[in-house]
Write a protein that binds this DNA or RNA. Structure first.
Lengths: 226, 226
DNA sequence: ATTAAAATATGATAATTGTCATACATTCAC
DNA sequence: GTGAATGTATGACAATTATCATATTTTAAT
């Protein structure tokens, strides 16, 4: 059983408040999983009874809308936690989590998390800050969806993706999303997304390298995002 | 100075976890305000250094978008708290709060709130649950904005407004929003909102009584919202 | 390697939504 | 009470976006 104490990613989440003793307790109760690209970690409506800590790989949080399309609400990366919202609310999850890459995650049962809440005030504060950060992001995202055009949202999203996940040697976005997934992030039809990517390509804002996307003119793209 | 102990609305918020002693402390440090309809409680970018408890009246939380329109992110009613997000994140507010009706609010300084966090675990848990509830609502709202048509969103919003704020004797929605504000909730142009209201009126879903709106056919409206 | 399936791309067209103009009604200040 | 300002309403039109059809390319399975 690997030791949480030596796990680097915990430094990036609320878990960084845990002391040696608590980390030992966590190491004993946790379960590690390998999730293959495309597989779910949990699905909308499930009761998870614990939280997941992402050690490696990125996943998408999606919600199925009435028209059958998956809306991507957030991308989650190594160091972040998953499932806090429903654990704290004591409700089934309102979102599905699906791996965009091969992933390594650890599951920590609800019982231990609740004990940390009760005994470690800094942990509680960290968790609260993290949820508040998500809420701020969600509010910003809402305004963008409500008030910006699809073109503006695409430009904005491409910039965010580069900022958050970086780029490969050839300049293309490191995070690999299908056109359908990208459309699901900006809230539009897949064809509209593809069409706008073509347009951005033609006017030299981006370059399409196969399915990959490279940002060429960051400043123009920024102006386009308003 | 009025006693928080006897204040009914605190029962509806995280504050219900506070004990007698803490309520006395709060009563001593709090400031009460009367806010007139249309006046702000705080504005985007301000640092509030505390939270507000709404005793009476409803307010809107808005965010100004790049195109100059105000997007309404949430309506907040008596019993709810205001400003927790930015207090916990230790950031300026990302939203403005403006009174939709004459309001009575109490301001509780950051210092005392932080002491409650440190000494009262149930209070922390309540606050966390409340923020998590907001996050779930925001996610739902996001999906609705991204995937539903303006018509569907209008239908959905009218139903929510009746459910949350009730109706007057004449059947009209109790909460008074201008067409511009309603448009700001569903994320559309004021004219589009007005046009759809007219259409809903013509086909007997709603009735327009001056500026007020009464829901006539709840079931059809529900089907329209999908 | 060959074929089927899935993803990407593009055109044509329709539906939705925004913008601008204008009219009418209501509210408010004086 | 009168006029200005604001809010509501509607038409005309343009822009945006979705949908359906159909290539083309890429990926996966056998």
């Amino acid at each position: 059983m690997s030791k949480c104490e030596q796990c680097i990613v915990r430094q990036f989440s609320s878990l960084k408040a845990l002391n040696k003793e608590e980390l030992l307790k966590m190491a004993e109760c946790k379960t590690s999983y390998i999730i293959k690209k495309g597989e779910p970690i949990f699905e909308e409506g499930e009761t998870t009874n614990g939280i997941f800590c992402i050690k490696d790989g990125v996943c998408k949080l999606t919600k199925l809308s009435a028209n059958g399309k998956d809306q991507i609400v957030k991308l989650v990366k190594p160091g972040e936690l998953l499932g806090q919202r429903s654990l704290i609310s004591e409700e089934p999850t309102n979102l599905s989590a699906v791996a965009l890459e091969d992933m390594e995650v650890c599951f920590i049962p609800k019982k231990e998390i609740m004990e940390f809440f009760n005994e470690n005030n800094q942990f509680s504060m960290n968790m609260m800050k993290s949820v508040c950060g998500d809420l701020k992001d969600a509010d910003d995202h809402m305004v963008s969806l409500a008030q910006k055009s699809v073109k503006e949202r695409l430009a904005e999203t491409l910039l965010e993706l580069e900022d958050t996940f970086g780029k490969n040697d050839d300049g293309s976005l490191h995070i690999q999303l299908s056109r359908e997934e990208l459309a699901g992030m900006i809230g539009t039809a897949t064809e509209s997304c593809i069409r706008l990517l073509s347009e951005f390509n033609k006017i030299g804002l981006i370059e399409l390298i196969g399915k990959k996307i490279a940002i060429i003119d960051r400043n123009k793209l920024k102006r386009m995002a308003e």
